[in-house]
């Protein structure tokens, strides 16, 4: 019975919105530095690499390297924003500030809390992606209206990375634990997913690995959409991201229940 409950599908109430609103209220107080960070980080990388390397490389995959890289960064910025929120910020609320403990004393379940955090981390991811798309648009590299279709992709990617992050969070013993995930999972993913160069440059076996990574699928959707082209095999990419989001959130739920409820 107890085991069955630990592995049950998440059972949610609309009150999970209150968790999202709590985080939003905190964010609103720190919105200016947060938004500046959303712009500054990728912009610095983009100008450094896009202009510097771009001058050496010329066109990549039929477009300027700056545009190629910028589209990749829209996807990776989403990944990092969702991940940092689901790791460091969620851990602080779960473990350090005991915010989750306070919430579940109200008529809220741990599933509600986790789902609220999940949606919140995806929202922050969308904000980070939007900042990148704003930059891309300002430089005239976004082709509307199709570029708008990149937004739901960023939401889906945000949900996928937020879910993975929450699952890691449920296993964390402290903030240092997250270095493993960042260094051993996210950094290689960033290199293998076609953010900096086309995946076709990689040796065949590594391309197979890349094809399993969620960031790869996000890039494969976002880049063509931003340049006004319909992606090849869009349903496959959407399905992989949705799979990571759904399975990831289920795993995160089970692991968090095991950590806090058993």
């Amino acid at each position: 019975m107890r085991r069955a409950r630990q592995f049950a599908l998440p059972l949610l109430s609309p009150r999970l919105i209150a968790v999202w609103r709590r985080n939003f209220l905190v964010w609103r107080k720190l919105a200016v530095p947060s938004i500046l960070g959303n712009f500054a980080d990728p912009l610095i990388m983009l100008f450094g690499l896009g202009y510097g390397l771009g001058a050496v490389m010329g066109n990549v995959a039929g477009t300027s390297y700056f545009a190629f890289l910028a589209a990749g960064f829209a996807a990776s910025a989403t990944m990092y924003a969702a991940t940092f929120e689901a790791l460091f910020s969620a851990f602080s609320r779960m473990h350090v500030q005991k915010t989750w403990e306070a919430i579940v004393n109200a008529p809220m379940t741990l599933d509600d809390v986790l789902a609220g955090e999940w949606l919140w981390a995806a929202s922050k991811a969308l904000a980070a992606g939007l900042c990148m798309i704003a930059v891309i648009s300002a430089f005239g590299y976004a082709s509307y209206p199709l570029a708008l279709a990149a937004l739901p992709v960023l939401v889906l990617a945000g949900l996928a990375f937020a879910a993975l992050g929450l699952a890691v969070n449920a296993l964390a013993s402290g903030y240092d634990f997250f270095s493993y995930y960042l260094t051993l999972v996210l950094t290689p993913m960033m290199m293998l997913s076609g953010v900096f160069f086309p995946v076709e440059q990689l040796p065949g076996p590594i391309q197979i690995v890349a094809a399993a990574l969620p960031l790869h699928h996000a890039v494969q959707l976002v880049r063509p959409l931003l340049s006004g082209v319909l992606p090849a095999a869009p349903l496959l990419h959407v399905a992989v991201l949705a799979g990571y989001a759904a399975v990831g959130f289920y795993v995160a739920t089970v692991l968090t229940r095991r950590r806090l409820l058993s």
């Binding site: 107080k29 500030q97 005991k98």
Partner: peptide, 25 residues
């Protein structure tokens, strides 16, 4: 009232009450 304070350090007194009240619907 839990054993260890878990008020929201980012919020004011009023915000703590409003945000917590929302969990009750």
């Amino acid at each position: 009232v839990p054993q260890f304070d878990n008020l929201d350090p980012d919020f004011t007194v009023t915000e703590n009450l409003v945000v917590y009240g929302r969990y009750f619907g």
